[in-house]
Computed example of a mutant assay.
Amino acid sequence: MNDRFRISSLLAGRLTEHGLALPDLLRLAGLPGGFLQQEKIHATTAELFALWRSVGELSPDPAIGLKLGSDPRLEKYHPAAVAAVCSRSYRDAIQRMARYKQLTCPEEIGIHEENGEATVEFIYHEADNDEPEVLIDMALAWIVSVGRLGTGGQVTPLRLDLKRATRQRELLEDHFGCRVRFKAGRNALVFRATDLDRPFLTHNEELLAAIGAQLETELQSRNRTSDLGERVKRTLKRSLAGRRPSLQDIARELGMSTRTLQRRLGEAAITFQQVVEETRRELAHHYLQQEAVELNGVAFLLGYEDSNSFFRAFHGWEGTSPGEWRSRTGAMGY
């Protein structure tokens, strides 16, 4: 997967508005002094995390991430965010944001519905450590901000799950309007599934068509040059939790017929089963390095019916058990 985030040229101005001195910020992050003045700004996951950790360390405002993610000025939005606000419903908006994220970074918006609840989280597949808290605050605040703007304030999450230790509870609960569960195994918003079907008062079909057409053209161009196996893998990573997606499911997500996907995989000399196993192995390594995720939880997140099936598969990949691998690689908790 290409580890390149495209950073908006407006970011430098937004950080300055919040009282941050860019030279100090970049120095602390270990980035070049002209990093945010480039015509096209790209960063690796490690560089992006270093930047946002530095924002958190230098800013005296504990709400800076929430404020950056809730900016109501449309001129500050990426075109994908404008398209989201112009969408037909909250579900349509989140799906558009998830789709167009592919244009700017190796970060995905995961959406999972179960038992009347809808979970939305940001997934950084190239991350070697936990996401900076300011970045998580900003991303999740952005999701809620789009929903509130589109529905006229009718969307409130049921719960906010955060990996971090308990702090700033009152600030976070006041902003999101829901209880916060700290020391969770993920950073995610949980909504009523029915809230995703709320229509957007800001729906604008003409503007949506104009912006959407350009974004779709960019996306199609990118997809034509993207490795099919990696595209299937990215889609699987969004869909594995609690179930095993079928070839038909993935084809539908990729906007092609099952027959076409099967043919193109064959032309690339790979099988769907091979991609599924590679995806599960990569995600297993990622989850096992997260001390808060239990082994049974890893099996669920990888779409296995039971823990024994996961243990057998992992032993086949690594020649050892998940618990032994976790201990050997230095992860904690087991």
Rank of each mutant, 00 (worst) to 15 (best):
L208H: 15
D130R: 07
T45S: 09
F5A: 11
E216N: 14
E206A: 15
L301Q: 14
A21N: 14
H175K: 09
D24W: 03
P322K: 01
R264M: 09
V298C: 09
W317G: 01
F176G: 06
R164S: 14
R328K: 12
N187Y: 06
R222I: 07
T217H: 12
E277S: 14
R252P: 00
D161W: 04
D249G: 04
R53D: 13
T260I: 08
H78V: 07
E75Q: 13
E75L: 12
T279Y: 03
A29F: 00
R326F: 08
S89K: 07
T271W: 04
S87D: 13
L58K: 11
A251W: 04
R222W: 06
L295F: 10
V275S: 02
S59M: 03
L58N: 05
P106W: 04
A127P: 08
L15W: 09
G19N: 11
E121Q: 09
L20E: 05
R328T: 13
R186G: 00
V144I: 14
G255F: 04
L261N: 10
H203D: 10
K67H: 10
L215P: 07
L171Y: 05
R224A: 13
T16D: 03
N115Y: 08
R164G: 02
R252A: 15
M138P: 00
G13R: 11
P62V: 05
R252I: 00
Y90W: 11
E17L: 12
L171S: 05
A29N: 02
I7A: 05
R198A: 12
C105A: 15
V155E: 08
E117C: 06
M1R: 07
P79M: 04
S70C: 09
R198I: 13
G316C: 01
T329Q: 14
R238Q: 13
G303A: 08
H112W: 08
P245F: 11
L247I: 13
P72S: 01
P157I: 04
K101Q: 13
G152P: 02
Q248P: 00
G30T: 03
E108N: 07
H315D: 06
R73G: 03
Q220A: 14
V298A: 09
K67C: 04
L135D: 03
D3V: 04
E205W: 06
E324M: 05
L15I: 08
L160C: 08
Q38F: 02
R179G: 09
A188D: 05
E205M: 05
G30S: 07
Y304T: 01
E113R: 15
F314W: 11
A81P: 02
L74N: 01
T329W: 06
G30A: 07
L66T: 09
P23K: 09
D92V: 07
K40R: 15
T45I: 04
G34H: 15
Y287G: 02
R4V: 09
G297H: 08
I143A: 12
R263C: 02
G323I: 07
V85R: 14
F49M: 00
E113I: 13
G242M: 08
G56F: 11
R164C: 13
K101E: 15
R222K: 15
G185C: 05
E131P: 03
S87E: 12
S257I: 02
E305P: 00
N296T: 15
D130Q: 12
